[in-house]
Amino acid sequence: MSMRSPLGRVRGLGSAKEGTGHWWAQRVTAIALIPLTLWFAAGLLSVIGAEHGAAIAWIGSPVTAVLLVLLLATGFYHAQLGLQVVLEDYVHHEGAKIAALLCVKFACLLLGAAAVFGVLKIAFQG
């Protein structure tokens, strides 16, 4: 006989209160990153060693700007999900763990926001 309440079973969120949300988010972003990463690697090779003008022409073109913003948002979200698991596995002191998690989450958000701002500035202002 299960000791779990019918409501708890239906919600399926378990003792961590988030169910399989983290797992799914990591997989969905991983799948999105496959084509985005391959596109980005190919695009980067086309502007490698290029002058400033050629680089911003590439970054600022509509297709590149949109895909780059998607890559940055998805990539940093995926990164903080992955780093979170690493910290939860190896940092055992509760206070240090929470501090490290906050640092990683804030850093990923800051870097992602800064990079997206850079792409949009190039796209709109050149």
């Binding site: 400033h52 680089a55 911003i56 970054i59 780059l68 990539g75 940093f76 990164a79 992955g82 780093l83 990923c108 870097l111 800064a114 990079a115 701002f117 850079g118 792409v119 500035k121 190039i122």
Partner: peptide, 16 residues
Amino acid sequence: LALGTLHLVFWILAAA
């Protein structure tokens, strides 16, 4: 890769 994004972010911001 997470650490390497620093270079990517600097590259984009420098271009901007």
